[in-house]
Design a protein around this nucleic acid. Structure first.
Length: 354
DNA sequence: AAATCGGGGTA
DNA sequence: TACCCAGATTT
Protein backbone atom coordinates (compact mmCIF):
# COMPACT_ATOMS: atom_id res chain seq x y z
CA UNK A 1 0.00 0.00 0.00
CA UNK A 2 2.46 2.60 1.20
CA UNK A 3 5.69 0.67 1.64
CA UNK A 4 7.80 3.64 2.68
CA UNK A 5 5.33 5.27 5.07
CA UNK A 6 7.14 4.01 8.13
CA UNK A 7 10.58 4.74 6.67
CA UNK A 8 9.63 8.33 5.92
CA UNK A 9 8.00 8.76 9.29
CA UNK A 10 11.06 7.43 11.11
CA UNK A 11 13.30 9.68 9.07
CA UNK A 12 11.20 12.65 10.13
CA UNK A 13 11.25 11.45 13.74
CA UNK A 14 15.04 11.08 13.79
CA UNK A 15 15.32 14.75 12.87
CA UNK A 16 12.36 16.43 14.54
CA UNK A 17 10.73 14.04 17.00
CA UNK A 18 10.57 14.70 20.72
CA UNK A 19 12.94 12.56 22.72
CA UNK A 20 13.21 14.46 25.99
CA UNK A 21 9.79 13.91 27.52
CA UNK A 22 10.01 12.62 31.10
CA UNK A 23 8.45 9.26 30.22
CA UNK A 24 10.99 8.80 27.41
CA UNK A 25 13.73 8.68 30.04
CA UNK A 26 14.25 5.45 32.01
CA UNK A 27 11.54 3.80 29.94
CA UNK A 28 9.70 1.06 31.81
CA UNK A 29 6.29 -0.49 31.15
CA UNK A 30 5.01 1.18 34.33
CA UNK A 31 6.14 4.65 33.24
CA UNK A 32 4.72 4.11 29.76
CA UNK A 33 1.41 2.97 31.23
CA UNK A 34 1.19 5.90 33.63
CA UNK A 35 2.06 8.45 30.96
CA UNK A 36 -0.46 7.01 28.51
CA UNK A 37 -3.24 7.16 31.09
CA UNK A 38 -2.33 10.75 32.00
CA UNK A 39 -2.17 11.69 28.32
CA UNK A 40 -5.73 10.53 27.71
CA UNK A 41 -7.77 13.71 27.31
CA UNK A 42 -4.86 15.75 28.58
CA UNK A 43 -2.11 17.64 26.78
CA UNK A 44 1.60 16.90 27.12
CA UNK A 45 2.50 20.19 28.80
CA UNK A 46 -0.18 19.75 31.44
CA UNK A 47 0.86 16.17 32.12
CA UNK A 48 4.61 16.73 32.63
CA UNK A 49 4.58 18.12 36.21
CA UNK A 50 1.95 15.58 37.28
CA UNK A 51 4.01 12.73 35.86
CA UNK A 52 7.14 13.93 37.66
CA UNK A 53 5.40 14.22 41.00
CA UNK A 54 3.51 10.95 40.63
CA UNK A 55 6.56 8.87 39.74
CA UNK A 56 8.56 10.49 42.50
CA UNK A 57 5.97 9.59 45.09
CA UNK A 58 4.92 6.24 43.64
CA UNK A 59 7.89 4.96 41.64
CA UNK A 60 6.69 1.37 41.28
CA UNK A 61 3.51 -0.57 40.62
CA UNK A 62 3.85 -2.06 44.07
CA UNK A 63 3.95 1.39 45.68
CA UNK A 64 0.90 2.41 43.69
CA UNK A 65 -0.96 -0.72 44.73
CA UNK A 66 -0.31 0.05 48.39
CA UNK A 67 -1.10 3.77 48.24
CA UNK A 68 -4.37 5.00 49.67
CA UNK A 69 -7.08 6.21 47.33
CA UNK A 70 -6.78 9.65 48.92
CA UNK A 71 -3.07 9.82 48.10
CA UNK A 72 -3.56 8.77 44.48
CA UNK A 73 -6.42 11.23 44.00
CA UNK A 74 -4.30 13.93 45.65
CA UNK A 75 -1.58 13.33 43.05
CA UNK A 76 -4.30 13.57 40.38
CA UNK A 77 -5.93 16.76 41.70
CA UNK A 78 -6.39 19.20 38.81
CA UNK A 79 -5.91 16.66 36.01
CA UNK A 80 -9.59 15.79 35.73
CA UNK A 81 -11.31 12.50 34.80
CA UNK A 82 -10.55 11.11 38.22
CA UNK A 83 -11.80 7.65 37.29
CA UNK A 84 -8.43 7.30 35.54
CA UNK A 85 -6.66 7.55 38.90
CA UNK A 86 -8.97 5.10 40.61
CA UNK A 87 -8.60 2.64 37.72
CA UNK A 88 -4.82 3.03 37.82
CA UNK A 89 -4.69 2.07 41.49
CA UNK A 90 -7.14 -0.79 40.99
CA UNK A 91 -5.08 -2.13 38.09
CA UNK A 92 -1.89 -1.91 40.15
CA UNK A 93 -3.53 -4.08 42.80
CA UNK A 94 -4.64 -6.60 40.16
CA UNK A 95 -1.14 -6.64 38.65
CA UNK A 96 0.32 -7.34 42.08
CA UNK A 97 -2.17 -10.11 42.74
CA UNK A 98 -2.10 -11.77 39.32
CA UNK A 99 1.19 -10.92 37.59
CA UNK A 100 3.82 -10.73 40.35
CA UNK A 101 3.71 -6.95 40.22
CA UNK A 102 4.79 -6.63 36.58
CA UNK A 103 2.60 -5.49 33.71
CA UNK A 104 1.79 -8.45 31.45
CA UNK A 105 3.33 -8.26 27.96
CA UNK A 106 0.13 -9.45 26.30
CA UNK A 107 -2.39 -7.26 24.50
CA UNK A 108 -5.45 -9.11 25.79
CA UNK A 109 -4.19 -9.24 29.37
CA UNK A 110 -3.49 -5.49 29.29
CA UNK A 111 -6.91 -4.72 27.84
CA UNK A 112 -8.54 -6.68 30.65
CA UNK A 113 -7.17 -4.20 33.22
CA UNK A 114 -9.46 -1.32 34.17
CA UNK A 115 -8.60 1.91 32.38
CA UNK A 116 -6.67 0.19 29.57
CA UNK A 117 -8.43 -0.01 26.20
CA UNK A 118 -7.26 -1.11 22.79
CA UNK A 119 -5.09 1.92 22.03
CA UNK A 120 -3.47 2.22 25.45
CA UNK A 121 -2.74 -1.52 25.44
CA UNK A 122 -1.07 -1.09 22.05
CA UNK A 123 1.00 1.82 23.34
CA UNK A 124 2.24 -0.16 26.34
CA UNK A 125 3.12 -3.12 24.11
CA UNK A 126 4.98 -1.01 21.56
CA UNK A 127 6.63 1.61 23.77
CA UNK A 128 7.07 -0.45 26.93
CA UNK A 129 7.80 -3.92 25.57
CA UNK A 130 8.96 -3.19 22.01
CA UNK A 131 6.40 -5.64 20.66
CA UNK A 132 4.60 -5.11 17.38
CA UNK A 133 1.31 -3.47 18.34
CA UNK A 134 -0.83 -0.63 17.07
CA UNK A 135 -2.09 2.54 18.70
CA UNK A 136 -4.89 4.83 17.57
CA UNK A 137 -5.07 7.91 19.76
CA UNK A 138 -6.54 11.27 18.78
CA UNK A 139 -3.36 12.43 17.07
CA UNK A 140 -3.10 9.29 14.95
CA UNK A 141 -6.81 9.36 14.09
CA UNK A 142 -6.45 12.91 12.81
CA UNK A 143 -3.36 12.13 10.74
CA UNK A 144 -4.81 8.96 9.20
CA UNK A 145 -8.21 10.52 8.50
CA UNK A 146 -6.44 13.26 6.54
CA UNK A 147 -3.82 11.09 4.88
CA UNK A 148 -6.36 8.55 3.61
CA UNK A 149 -9.26 10.99 3.26
CA UNK A 150 -11.46 9.09 5.67
CA UNK A 151 -14.48 11.26 6.39
CA UNK A 152 -16.96 11.02 9.23
CA UNK A 153 -16.61 11.31 12.97
CA UNK A 154 -14.13 8.75 14.41
CA UNK A 155 -16.62 8.06 17.21
CA UNK A 156 -18.75 6.24 14.65
CA UNK A 157 -18.11 2.53 14.54
CA UNK A 158 -17.54 2.35 10.80
CA UNK A 159 -15.08 5.25 10.81
CA UNK A 160 -13.18 3.84 13.77
CA UNK A 161 -13.01 0.47 12.08
CA UNK A 162 -11.58 2.01 8.90
CA UNK A 163 -8.97 3.96 10.90
CA UNK A 164 -7.90 0.91 12.91
CA UNK A 165 -7.56 -1.05 9.69
CA UNK A 166 -5.20 1.56 8.22
CA UNK A 167 -3.31 1.96 11.48
CA UNK A 168 -2.66 -1.77 11.76
CA UNK A 169 -1.61 -2.10 8.15
CA UNK A 170 0.93 0.68 8.53
CA UNK A 171 2.51 -0.47 11.79
CA UNK A 172 5.97 -1.92 11.04
CA UNK A 173 7.63 -4.69 12.97
CA UNK A 174 11.01 -2.99 12.98
CA UNK A 175 11.58 -0.03 15.32
CA UNK A 176 7.97 -0.22 16.47
CA UNK A 177 8.56 1.83 19.62
CA UNK A 178 10.06 4.70 17.66
CA UNK A 179 7.38 4.41 15.00
CA UNK A 180 4.68 4.62 17.66
CA UNK A 181 6.24 7.65 19.28
CA UNK A 182 6.75 9.20 15.86
CA UNK A 183 3.20 8.87 14.60
CA UNK A 184 1.84 10.42 17.81
CA UNK A 185 4.47 13.17 17.62
CA UNK A 186 3.82 14.18 14.04
CA UNK A 187 0.09 14.27 14.75
CA UNK A 188 0.64 16.44 17.79
CA UNK A 189 3.17 18.85 16.28
CA UNK A 190 2.58 19.05 12.49
CA UNK A 191 -0.80 17.52 11.76
CA UNK A 192 -2.56 19.71 14.31
CA UNK A 193 -6.29 20.24 14.52
CA UNK A 194 -6.11 23.82 13.26
CA UNK A 195 -3.44 25.24 10.96
CA UNK A 196 -1.50 22.04 10.24
CA UNK A 197 2.06 22.64 9.03
CA UNK A 198 1.67 20.76 5.77
CA UNK A 199 4.70 22.46 4.22
CA UNK A 200 6.96 20.69 6.71
CA UNK A 201 5.17 17.36 6.47
CA UNK A 202 6.95 14.37 4.92
CA UNK A 203 3.59 13.11 3.64
CA UNK A 204 2.41 16.21 1.83
CA UNK A 205 2.95 14.66 -1.60
CA UNK A 206 0.48 11.86 -1.02
CA UNK A 207 -1.80 13.14 1.74
CA UNK A 208 -5.39 13.08 0.53
CA UNK A 209 -6.52 16.06 2.61
CA UNK A 210 -3.55 18.18 1.59
CA UNK A 211 -4.12 17.39 -2.10
CA UNK A 212 -7.81 18.19 -1.80
CA UNK A 213 -7.40 21.18 0.48
CA UNK A 214 -9.82 19.81 3.04
CA UNK A 215 -7.62 19.34 6.10
CA UNK A 216 -10.04 21.56 8.00
CA UNK A 217 -12.88 19.08 7.39
CA UNK A 218 -11.01 15.98 8.48
CA UNK A 219 -11.51 14.21 10.74
CA UNK A 220 -15.27 14.73 10.87
CA UNK A 221 -16.62 16.55 13.88
CA UNK A 222 -18.57 15.06 16.69
CA UNK A 223 -22.27 15.86 16.38
CA UNK A 224 -22.93 18.46 19.04
CA UNK A 225 -25.88 18.56 21.32
CA UNK A 226 -27.01 21.26 23.65
CA UNK A 227 -25.98 20.70 27.22
CA UNK A 228 -28.34 21.25 30.11
CA UNK A 229 -27.45 23.76 32.83
CA UNK A 230 -27.83 22.62 36.42
CA UNK A 231 -27.41 24.72 39.52
CA UNK A 232 -26.07 23.96 42.97
CA UNK A 233 -24.76 25.65 46.10
CA UNK A 234 -21.47 24.84 47.78
CA UNK A 235 -21.23 25.64 51.49
CA UNK A 236 -17.90 27.17 52.49
CA UNK A 237 -18.25 26.50 56.19
CA UNK A 238 -15.46 28.03 58.26
CA UNK A 239 -14.85 27.32 61.93
CA UNK A 240 -13.38 29.92 64.26
CA UNK A 241 -9.86 28.85 63.24
CA UNK A 242 -10.66 29.51 59.61
CA UNK A 243 -10.66 25.84 58.67
CA UNK A 244 -13.07 24.62 56.02
CA UNK A 245 -15.49 21.72 56.24
CA UNK A 246 -14.91 19.10 53.53
CA UNK A 247 -16.81 15.89 52.81
CA UNK A 248 -15.65 12.83 50.93
CA UNK A 249 -18.05 12.28 48.04
CA UNK A 250 -19.87 8.97 47.75
CA UNK A 251 -18.60 6.35 45.28
CA UNK A 252 -21.35 7.06 42.78
CA UNK A 253 -22.40 10.18 40.91
CA UNK A 254 -20.11 13.08 40.21
CA UNK A 255 -16.56 13.35 41.64
CA UNK A 256 -16.62 9.99 43.44
CA UNK A 257 -14.00 9.64 46.17
CA UNK A 258 -12.99 13.29 45.97
CA UNK A 259 -13.38 15.77 48.81
CA UNK A 260 -15.67 18.73 48.35
CA UNK A 261 -17.61 21.38 50.19
CA UNK A 262 -21.03 20.26 51.46
CA UNK A 263 -23.58 20.71 48.73
CA UNK A 264 -27.12 22.04 48.83
CA UNK A 265 -29.67 22.12 46.03
CA UNK A 266 -31.17 25.31 47.44
CA UNK A 267 -30.28 28.44 49.41
CA UNK A 268 -33.59 28.41 51.21
CA UNK A 269 -32.79 29.53 54.81
CA UNK A 270 -34.87 26.83 56.48
CA UNK A 271 -33.22 24.10 54.43
CA UNK A 272 -29.75 25.47 55.19
CA UNK A 273 -30.55 25.66 58.90
CA UNK A 274 -31.54 21.99 58.81
CA UNK A 275 -28.23 21.17 57.13
CA UNK A 276 -26.21 23.04 59.76
CA UNK A 277 -28.06 21.12 62.46
CA UNK A 278 -27.17 17.84 60.77
CA UNK A 279 -23.53 18.81 61.01
CA UNK A 280 -24.02 19.91 64.63
CA UNK A 281 -22.85 23.41 63.78
CA UNK A 282 -24.01 26.79 64.91
CA UNK A 283 -23.76 29.04 61.89
CA UNK A 284 -24.12 32.70 61.04
CA UNK A 285 -26.09 33.93 58.05
CA UNK A 286 -24.59 32.63 54.79
CA UNK A 287 -23.00 35.18 52.44
CA UNK A 288 -23.35 34.40 48.75
CA UNK A 289 -20.18 34.77 46.66
CA UNK A 290 -20.07 35.18 42.88
CA UNK A 291 -21.70 32.38 40.90
CA UNK A 292 -19.46 30.62 38.40
CA UNK A 293 -19.82 27.87 35.86
CA UNK A 294 -18.12 24.49 35.84
CA UNK A 295 -18.49 22.54 32.62
CA UNK A 296 -18.74 18.76 32.46
CA UNK A 297 -18.94 16.66 29.33
CA UNK A 298 -22.70 16.47 29.42
CA UNK A 299 -23.87 19.49 31.37
CA UNK A 300 -22.93 22.84 32.84
CA UNK A 301 -23.04 23.33 36.57
CA UNK A 302 -23.76 26.84 37.86
CA UNK A 303 -22.17 26.97 41.30
CA UNK A 304 -23.04 29.58 43.89
CA UNK A 305 -20.68 29.48 46.87
CA UNK A 306 -22.22 30.34 50.24
CA UNK A 307 -19.73 31.48 52.85
CA UNK A 308 -20.80 30.42 56.34
CA UNK A 309 -18.98 31.30 59.56
CA UNK A 310 -19.43 28.66 62.24
CA UNK A 311 -18.91 28.82 65.99
CA UNK A 312 -17.30 25.40 66.20
CA UNK A 313 -13.75 25.45 67.49
CA UNK A 314 -12.89 21.83 68.16
CA UNK A 315 -11.78 19.20 65.69
CA UNK A 316 -14.77 17.07 66.50
CA UNK A 317 -15.37 15.64 63.07
CA UNK A 318 -14.35 12.06 62.55
CA UNK A 319 -12.64 10.88 59.37
CA UNK A 320 -14.76 7.75 59.54
CA UNK A 321 -17.66 10.08 59.04
CA UNK A 322 -16.12 11.24 55.76
CA UNK A 323 -15.80 14.80 57.01
CA UNK A 324 -12.76 16.89 57.90
CA UNK A 325 -11.81 20.43 58.83
CA UNK A 326 -9.33 21.50 56.16
CA UNK A 327 -6.57 23.93 57.06
CA UNK A 328 -5.55 26.03 54.04
CA UNK A 329 -2.17 26.73 55.61
CA UNK A 330 -1.43 23.06 56.30
CA UNK A 331 -3.41 21.08 53.74
CA UNK A 332 -3.79 17.32 54.15
CA UNK A 333 -3.17 15.23 51.05
CA UNK A 334 -6.55 14.37 49.60
CA UNK A 335 -8.16 14.58 46.17
CA UNK A 336 -9.87 17.87 45.40
CA UNK A 337 -11.94 19.02 42.44
CA UNK A 338 -11.31 22.07 40.28
CA UNK A 339 -14.17 24.17 41.71
CA UNK A 340 -12.94 23.43 45.23
CA UNK A 341 -9.31 24.37 44.59
CA UNK A 342 -10.53 27.44 42.76
CA UNK A 343 -12.65 28.54 45.72
CA UNK A 344 -9.82 27.85 48.13
CA UNK A 345 -7.52 30.09 46.11
CA UNK A 346 -10.13 32.84 46.20
CA UNK A 347 -10.52 32.49 49.96
CA UNK A 348 -6.77 32.78 50.44
CA UNK A 349 -6.73 35.98 48.40
CA UNK A 350 -9.68 37.31 50.38
CA UNK A 351 -7.82 36.60 53.62
CA UNK A 352 -4.54 38.09 52.46
CA UNK A 353 -6.32 41.33 51.69
CA UNK A 354 -7.84 41.69 55.15
C1' DA B 1 -18.50 29.48 23.83
C1' DA B 2 -16.97 25.49 21.37
C1' DA B 3 -13.96 21.79 20.40
C1' DT B 4 -11.12 18.27 22.02
C1' DC B 5 -9.64 13.70 24.03
C1' DG B 6 -9.80 7.26 25.38
C1' DG B 7 -12.30 4.24 28.08
C1' DG B 8 -16.03 2.23 31.25
C1' DG B 9 -20.70 0.85 31.99
C1' DT B 10 -25.23 -0.37 30.55
C1' DA B 11 -29.17 -1.73 27.77
C1' DT C 1 -23.44 -2.57 19.24
C1' DA C 2 -25.25 1.92 20.48
C1' DC C 3 -25.48 5.18 23.66
C1' DC C 4 -24.45 7.68 27.85
C1' DC C 5 -21.02 9.27 31.24
C1' DA C 6 -16.84 11.72 33.12
C1' DG C 7 -13.25 17.58 33.47
C1' DA C 8 -10.03 20.68 32.17
C1' DT C 9 -7.56 23.16 28.65
C1' DT C 10 -7.03 25.39 24.32
C1' DT C 11 -8.80 28.00 20.65
Amino acid sequence: MQPDFSARLLNWYDQYGRKNLPWQQQVTPYRVWLSEIMLQQTQVNTVIPYFEKFTQRLPTISALAQASEDEVLHLWTGLGYYARARNLRKSAQLIKANYQGELPAELTALEALPGIGRSTAGAIMALGFHKQATILDGNVKRLLARYFGISGWPGQTAVARALWEKAETLTPDQRVAEYTQAIMDIGATLCTRSKPQCTNCPFKADCSAHQNGNTADLPGKKPKKKMPVKTTYLLLMENSQGELLLEKRPPNGIWPGLWSFPESATDDPATLLGLFQQYGLEAQTPQALATFRHTFTHFHLEITPLQVKCQQTQHQLREANQKIWYDLAQPVEIGLTRPVTRLMTELKLQRDKS
